[in-house]
Design a protein around this nucleic acid. Structure first.
Lengths: 186, 186
DNA sequence: GAAGCATGTAAGTAATCACTTACTACGGAG
DNA sequence: CTCCGTAGTAAGTGATTACTTACATGCTTC
């Protein structure tokens, strides 16, 4: 099939990046984990950085779009938030390594590429602003409210990676959504 | 004075680690930023890893103790939470680089050393469990409630590092503490 | 004021890194 | 059958890394 080795490389890279960080993972390790030799990486990617970027771009903005779509199916900020949290946790449960990679890449080399665009953060911010206009979310700095919700939702995911919260997260999605809602409801 | 160069090295290391990550920072850069040559590092530390560990240990558990002390001065879970959040944000405002370093070291090489002990996470967990016993915090998984509060408090700090929230954070401490409280209050 | 120790430097060193090169195998098109 | 482009390998390459060594400097102590 088209790009089977390429897919193996990306999958192996995600797993290693999530476990040891991007700088802490060598091209040799990625190749070995994908069952090829180092040179094969350079048949599919310009270099290690391009590999990181391709994985990130393949998932980050599409994920944001997925969240925005979920938000669109709901009526009212509270229901929107619940729908978004469910999607976030479904994505986490689907591929924890990928989720962990996106979290850490966001704080690393992909920071500039990630801002400005329609990121997951902006989806929540949009939700918050709409709720404030509708009067269901309290009037406070929208950026701050967004960060509070973001943290309340993402930290249990991070905690799950470290054994603080039991998977699957989808089982606690509504509980977390309600807690985050109470934090910012007006 | 005792350890002036050592302190310069640790301070320079914190700044660079916060900006470029631990793996992304070289010993040469640290030495140059401290105004010495590379070899001087090894007069004060066994190696780079020991440097990281010493910075971490010098601040992480003492910080947890500081938070626990702040918690002890307050009466009731809500007041305790407010006191803890104020201390967290005061620490952030005092030295953002150090705070950023502690956040990332926690997810990196210091993960094992950090668990089990009296960490900041455990301080919040203790607060949560006490509040649940007193009936002021709703009955839910204490670990989960802890992670929700942790996220609601720390994410605005992370967001501040990226320009999403304006410093100083102490100005929004009570607002965040109240939001986090509403999330878990019973 | 000499000895000894702590602290720094300059110039390495071996290992490791991302990446390159020269080559092979092979599947499909003409 | 013969090309030829794709995809892979084995074996490098130079640069960079954390760390070491040999030596200089100056402070303290007796």
């Amino acid at each position: 099939m088209a790009g089977s080795t390429k897919d193996s490389l990306m999958q192996a890279a995600v797993r290693l990046f999530a476990a040891k960080g991007i700088d802490g993972t060598t091209t040799r390790e990625i190749a070995a984990a994908a069952g090829v030799t180092e040179g094969a990486i350079y048949r599919h990617f310009v270099g290690k950085e391009a590999l990181v970027e391709e994985i990130f771009h393949r998932h980050y903005l599409p994920f944001a779009a997925e969240l925005d779509a979920a938000r669109g199916t709901a009526e009212g900020a509270e229901a929107e938030l619940r729908a978004v949290v469910r999607r976030v946790y479904a994505a986490f449960d689907r591929d924890r390594d990928l989720f962990a990679f996106l979290l850490l890449a966001q704080h690393g080399p992909m920071r500039r590429i990630a801002d400005g665009a329609a990121t997951p953060v902006r989806v929540i911010e949009k939700l918050v602003r709409a709720g404030q206009r509708a009067g269901t979310i309290r009037r406070m700095d929208a950026r701050l409210a967004t960060q509070i919700v973001l943290g309340a939702v993402l930290q249990p995911a991070t905690g799950s990676l470290y054994g603080e919260v039991s998977p699957p997260l989808i089982a606690i999605a509504d509980q977390v959504a309600e807690a985050a809602w109470r934090a910012i409801a007006g």
